[in-house]
Simulated assay, not measured.
Amino acid sequence: MAYPVAKTRWHHDTARNFVTQIDYSAFDTPGRGRGILDVFRYHYLLRLLIGKSTSLRYRNSVLGWFWSYVRPTVQFLVYYLVVGQILGLHSKVPAFPLYLFSGLVLVNLFNDTMSAATSSIVSNKALVRKIYLPRELFPLAAIIGTFTHFLPQLAVLIVVSLLFGWLPSFASVGLALLGILLVVAFVMGLGLFFSAINVRFRDASNIVDIIRTIATWSVPILYTWEMVKKVTTTHHVPWLFDIYMSNPLAVGVELYHHAFWGSLPVVNDADPRPINLDWPPQFEWHVVAAIGVIIFSLVIGQFVFRRFERSFAQDL
């Protein structure tokens, strides 16, 4: 009667040894990935999310994509009439309409992508609660989807610049692309941070609205960098100007000004020559500082996103 017992023990030992020999390194822990690097692995899902965001943006809208032209046009006209005509900046800055518009389109890119990225997780809560996929796909898809609606504004800017006498060059195109790259990378870091915070604390969307309002006035589009330099020098706080110009959005706007407005013959031939036609003092260091700010925002944004994504399904 001892044989069946010994045989049973042998089977248990064999099963236990078989289980312990399984290599679990080939499996992924659910809900934990490689962060933003998984975007390249799941690029097909990214395309689907981008298509979803672009198709739903103007769903059941009469004007559809035409709204991509209407809102920035109205915004431009309001700023032009108030700042350009009433406050008189039109007489101080040659070709002021293009100076204003070339900076405004980049600020609109920042504001729109920030808003879309912040609400990306909450607006896709049905997917987040039902299946696992890299959560970073949602803010990135929102940013890219909103970027497609920036392209019509960029096309209008190019057409208006050509009417003003702008001649494209490798330098101007390179400056414009660099400006876009800086802004999109900056928004990616901020978008990761605020999209994660917004899942648990919906106050984050209100904070983003405040940031969007400040963004318009925190860069030299409704005034010139030379005005900021004069004020900080007068009040003996020149370091404030360096902090001001280290903002990636401010750097991107200046790159756009030089790519479009600064290349106009009417601006270069103006008498007297506009001071803001030159690069701001020590601008190369401001670019380096802006890149540092972008890297810092990406690191912090990814870190906070990874900490909060563990409870996305429960919080939603």
Rank of each mutant, 00 (worst) to 15 (best):
L162E: 08
A313H: 12
F201S: 00
P281M: 01
K125H: 13
L77Y: 03
A176P: 04
D28C: 10
L77I: 02
T233H: 14
Q302T: 11
A15D: 13
A6N: 03
L49R: 01
H286Y: 02
D203S: 08
L167I: 15
D203M: 08
R202C: 10
A15N: 01
V253I: 03
N60E: 07
R41W: 01
V208P: 03
R212N: 03
V187A: 00
S195K: 03
R9Q: 09
D315F: 06
R273Q: 13
L45C: 07
F96W: 09
F296I: 05
I50D: 07
R32W: 00
V122L: 14
L167C: 05
G165L: 05
M227S: 06
V78H: 10
V105T: 14
L240Y: 00
T233W: 03
A204K: 04
V199R: 02
G103K: 07
I211P: 00
L182E: 13
S68I: 11
I144C: 11
L49Y: 02
T232S: 06
V187F: 10
L133S: 01
I86G: 09
G301L: 03
V253T: 11
H236Y: 15
Y244P: 05
H235M: 15
I144K: 00
D315H: 12
V237P: 11
F18N: 08
D209W: 03
V39H: 06
V253C: 04
M114F: 05
E136N: 09
D28F: 09
T234A: 15
V251T: 07
S123D: 07
Q85I: 11
W217V: 14
I22Y: 01
V287D: 05
Q153T: 11
Q75K: 15
P168C: 07
G51F: 02
T113C: 11
T234C: 10
N108K: 12
L104Q: 14
A141C: 02
L106Y: 06
S68R: 02
P4S: 15
I22H: 02
P265E: 04
V187I: 04
F18E: 11
A2R: 15
V228L: 15
M114A: 12
F193M: 14
L89C: 12
P139M: 12
I22D: 01
I211V: 08
V228Q: 07
I86S: 15
T234N: 09
N198E: 04
V293G: 03
R135L: 02
T148D: 03
F170K: 15
V288Y: 10
K130W: 04
G51M: 05
S91K: 13
M227D: 10
A155I: 05
E284D: 13
T213G: 14
V5D: 04
L277Y: 14
G292V: 01
S120V: 01
L162M: 06
L154C: 09
R202V: 05
